[in-house]
Computed example of a mutant assay.
Amino acid sequence: MRAVVYTKYGPPEVLQLKEVDKPVPKDNEILVKIVATAVNAADWRLRKADPVAVKLFFGLTRPKKTILGGVLAGIVESVGCDVKRWKAGDEVFGSSGMNMGAYAEYICLPEDGVVALKPFNLSYVEAATVPFGGHTAIHFLRKANIQPRQKILIYGASGAVGTAAIQLAKLYGAEVTGVCSTANVEMVSSLGADKVIDYTKEEITGDNYDVIFDTVGKIPYEAVKKTLKKKGTWILGGAGVTQMVQGYWSGLSRGYKIISGLALEKEDDIRFLRELIEKGKYKAVVDKSYPMEQLSMAHSYVEKGHKKGNVGVIIDETLDTINK
């Protein structure tokens, strides 16, 4: 099969399209023919080893897992002998998590993995873009115990996690303020934000937010101090070392509840997202998509940090025309 692999850390050009062995499902696994995947922040950070601590877990001198890609949508081609829940022909979407491997034509996933039937009203590429932002937003909003009528500020509201967080916070009944650049104000508003702040034109203000969700790790610390309630919740969704230190110091000195770490992916959550999508309560936000052969270009675009929502990658263009 074809796969995009990388054998060393570095710029997007380290990603190379090659022929590799097609995986064979174990007794408790399903073999999925991947129709589409997506490029997320985790992908380019692993490719680049940014931060350098990535190497401690994924290989000191070169990557242990040579095929990136943590999300997918596709068709079950075959199943292991013990699999009961899936059958050949099922259209699915979900996540391979830290096992990665979705930058390829085929992948094996456990029967009880983070997989669900693909929403009938999404194309494959749209479906593939849902899990990363959706899982991350659900995880952090639940940890923050978001409540109806609470005020939440979402910084980086136009990205994969931000666009998901706006929609989910509104479903929880919160009052949402999104922060983004001029080009994304209209989109953020269309997703349900009650107020949108263009950070290129105005300062971040507000009436004592209950929750600040920084999805990109770039909110000015002064803005947090001025606008977050005493004992409010600060979600460090994309924090670097400096913001981590500021966050935990603020937790001690100002009484903020600090939430950070990796977002856990759950099978129940991918099913929850599917139900919302099919009921018209959640939208897949896709900026653009690239063919598999241009995956390095997709990485370059995403790494610049200016995408609107998500960037998809089409592995099989003929099949992605189905159910659009």
Rank of each mutant, 00 (worst) to 15 (best):
M1V: 12
R2L: 15
V4M: 13
V5L: 02
T7D: 12
K8L: 03
K8V: 11
P12D: 13
L15N: 10
Q16L: 12
L17W: 02
K18P: 00
I30F: 10
L31Q: 11
T37W: 04
A38T: 14
A38E: 09
V39I: 13
D43N: 15
R45Y: 02
A49P: 05
V54E: 02
G59K: 09
L68E: 00
G70F: 02
V71S: 04
V71K: 06
L72S: 03
A73N: 04
I75N: 07
D82M: 13
V83A: 11
G94T: 07
G97C: 12
Y103V: 06
C108P: 08
P110N: 13
P110M: 14
P110A: 08
P119F: 06
P119N: 08
S123Q: 07
S123N: 06
P131M: 05
I138H: 08
I138G: 01
R142K: 15
I146N: 05
I146S: 04
P148F: 10
Q150G: 03
L153S: 06
G159A: 06
A160Y: 01
T163M: 07
A165W: 05
L171M: 11
L171C: 00
Y172C: 00
G173H: 10
G173A: 13
G173T: 12
C180Y: 02
T182R: 11
T182P: 00
T182V: 01
N184W: 01
G192N: 10
A193F: 07
V196P: 02
D198L: 07
E203T: 11
G206W: 10
D210S: 10
K218C: 06
E222C: 00
G237D: 05
A239N: 09
Q243E: 15
S253D: 07
G255H: 10
S260F: 00
E265G: 08
D269Y: 11
I270K: 02
R274V: 03
L276P: 02
L276F: 01
I277P: 02
V285T: 06
K288W: 00
Y290E: 02
H299P: 06
H299A: 08
Y301W: 05
K304P: 01
H306V: 00
H306R: 15
G309C: 11
N310Y: 06
N310P: 11
V311W: 03
G312Q: 05
L319C: 05
I322R: 15
